[in-house]
């Protein structure tokens, strides 16, 4: 299809709007100067400084660990919730449970963060656990709100799944638990992956909730970035952002390659008899 001038302009502007900031960011990460907005020649020194910055690096690791734990926890709880909603028919309180699982999606982060903080403080006083706020409370908080997203992604896939597949497996002699492992899980696997990636991103991204429930010594990456930007943007952060963009791009490319391969397999036509 040929693009006319107008749509070409709109397209260019749209892409520029989306990607120009990222391109600028990448460009300035190779800037010699300490001043982010003044170009003073090419250099990779900020990457060196980034890896030498212990505070920043430990925040990266903490965030990665929390994001992994939170997304794994979220898909486990999300799968259970999705099963309860989709498979157990209309049990008592079905509608209430269904809307409550979605509530964290529309709840402002400030409210979620504050309420979780209150919960953790109250629990600490009543049972002595969690005794202090830190990476554990951040992890729990992230599991809480990521579960909502994971449950939605997984339940939409479960709803689509042909129930007779599970019945067929049972008919062929598999116990319900084996049916789940051998048939249901492989079929909903794409939604588990999607839910995991979504939760991972949300957890890596979260500043507000983590700020409420974090304690001394547990600073996540968004918190470090945000506080250091307030003191003036350091090109180190550009370098970090560039690395993140690189990792994400590679992940997207791999995902795309797998998707295309699956599609090509699917298009293989049956031979003539």
């Amino acid at each position: 299809m040929k693009l006319n001038k107008l749509s070409l302009t709109v397209l260019t502007l749209g892409f520029a709007f989306l990607y120009l900031p990222i391109v600028l960011l990448i460009g300035y990460s190779f800037n010699e100067s300490r001043l982010v907005t003044v170009w003073a020649g090419f250099s990779t020194k900020w990457y060196g400084e980034l890896f030498a910055d212990d505070q920043m690096m430990s925040a990266v690791w903490l965030s990665l660990k929390i994001a992994m734990g939170a997304s794994t926890g979220a898909i486990i709880l999300g799968t259970l919730a999705a099963f309860a909603l989709v498979r157990f028919g209309r049990f008592w309180g079905h509608t209430l449970f269904g809307s409550m699982i979605n509530a964290p999606l529309v709840m402002p982060d400030v409210i979620t963060g504050l309420s979780l903080l209150l919960l953790f403080v109250a629990m600490g006083q009543l049972f002595g656990w969690p005794s202090e706020r830190g990476s554990l409370t951040i992890l729990l908080a992230h599991i809480t709100f990521c579960t909502a997203y994971a449950a939605i992604v997984i339940s939409s896939r479960l709803k689509e799944m042909d129930l007779s597949l599970e019945e067929a497996a049972m008919d062929l002699g598999a116990h319900p638990f084996k049916v789940f492992w051998l048939v249901t899980l492989p079929i909903i696997a794409p939604s588990l992956v999607a839910g995991w990636l979504l939760s991972f991103t949300l957890s890596m991204d979260d500043l507000v909730i983590a700020s409420f429930v974090s304690g001394p010594g547990s600073t996540t990456l968004p918190m470090v970035v945000f506080s250091s930007v307030r003191l003036g943007v350091s090109p180190k952060i550009n370098a970090l952002a560039t690395l993140i963009v690189l990792v994400v791009s590679i992940a997207v490319c791999i995902a795309w390659w797998f998707a295309r391969k699956a599609e090509r397999d699917a298009q293989m036509l049956p031979d003539e008899e």
Binding site: D162, S164, L165, E167, A168, A169, M170, D171, L172, G173, A174, H175, P176, V183, I187
Partner: peptide, 16 residues
């Protein structure tokens, strides 16, 4: 169903 010596062919075939 998993203890019955009965097998069924489903209308949608239900192939995994």
């Amino acid at each position: 169903p998993y203890e019955r010596p009965i097998n069924m062919m489903f209308q949608s075939y239900a192939l995994f």
